[in-house]
Design a protein around this nucleic acid. Structure first.
Length: 317
DNA sequence: ATCATGACCTGTTAGC
DNA sequence: TGCTAACAGGTCATGA
């Protein structure tokens, strides 16, 4: 489900209730998601602080006190729900709790949402319980994932970048590593189509079915075209590559600003839906008119690699 | 090396 | 109304 913008929306939602907090307890309600949960999962994290929460491609990466990292992927249907800890903190007299932490504010607001943002409780697979700096119960962070395509794995201290899931990822599209020269070098001579090329996380990290379609539309490139078209005979970038880079960046930035896309059940960690689905130019718009003024074409749906692709045959060539 | 395909799961919806 | 088939934001393993 979630592509880069959705993960990038979830991350700051979790940050205030995780970073600097201690995980008091982990309840794993089943032994596996897509993959088995880590060996001694709870024992490796319980009692430790979360020092940082970052994102790499579509992965959330939590740095655990002691050096290990917890790598989380939401798969297609994974989501986190935050709720105030069910155990009321004791001794909260006047003077205490006056100054609410940002985390408490978030959780308080969330209380209103919890009922309609949590998924089917049968699919609440992992629950993290945090405590505040004084050791009082703070929040309960629940991972819900009906299809179980998501996963949680751990990287040993100092071994995050060498982890098999991270090692081969391409550059972050919003960072400095993505430019036309890189894309051309990567695509030169390849005949896989542009759709497949951009879906491959080793080429560019973080794109998925929605944003590949939207980026190709913005770049005016057909998803069917061979990816080698991004390079000339000497492997130098073509104007197509020059157009594609800002198209990718712009669509991702716009989507992040809109809080991601909510199709079926995606929600930010605070329960808020995204709005970018209202800004789709081609995705899920089969048969509808092309949004480019004067184009007059209609969006077509084709199947590539078993997945739907949406594009305008008039302006994407 | 590169590419195409099937597999993993469950839920929702379109169509008969 | 009820059944079935197709489809869904991702990635990995396998085979050619």
């Amino acid at each position: 489900m979630p592509e880069l913008p959705e993960v990038e929306t979830v991350r700051p939602g979790l940050e205030p209730v995780l970073v600097g907090k201690r995980i008091a307890r982990i309840e794993a309600r089943r032994p596996d998601l897509r993959f088995p949960l880590p060996e001694r999962f709870a024992a490796r994290i319980e009692g430790r602080r979360i020092e940082h929460l970052g994102r790499r491609s579509k992965y959330l990466v939590a740095a655990i006190e002691g050096g290990e990292s917890l790598i989380l992927h939401l798969g297609m249907t994974g989501r986190f729900t935050i709720s105030p800890s069910p155990h009321p903190s004791r001794g909260e007299g006047p003077g205490e709790g006056q100054r609410q932490s940002r985390a408490d504010e978030v959780a308080r607001r969330l209380g209103e949402f919890v009922h309609d943002t949590g998924g089917d409780p049968r699919h609440d697979h992992v629950v993290f319980e945090t405590v505040d700096a004084k050791g009082r119960p703070a929040h309960r962070i629940t991972y819900n994932d009906p299809r179980r395509f998501g996963f949680m794995v751990m990287a040993e201290a100092g071994a995050l970048d060498a982890h098999a899931l991270i090692r081969d990822l391409g550059p972050e599209p919003l960072g400095n590593g993505l430019d036309a020269t890189y894309l051309a070098a990567r695509a030169s001579g390849r005949k896989a189509d542009l759709k497949a090329f951009l879906m491959d996380q080793r080429n560019v990290a973080g794109l998925g079915n929605i944003y590949v379609a939207e980026a190709l539309f913005r770049a005016g490139l057909s998803p069917n075209r061979a990816s080698g078209c991004l390079a000339d005979a000497k492997g130098r970038p073509t104007t197509r590559a020059e157009r594609l880079v800002p198209a990718i960046r712009d669509v991702l930035e716009a989507a992040i600003t809109a809080g991601g896309s909510t199709l079926r059940d995606y929600r930010a960690a605070d329960g808020a839906p995204g709005y970018f689905q209202h800004s789709f130019s081609v995705y899920d718009r089969e048969g509808e008119p092309c949004v480019r003024p004067g184009c007059g074409g209609r969006v077509r749906r084709i199947v590539q690699g078993g997945r739907s692709t949406f594009y305008c045959p008039r302006c994407q060539r």
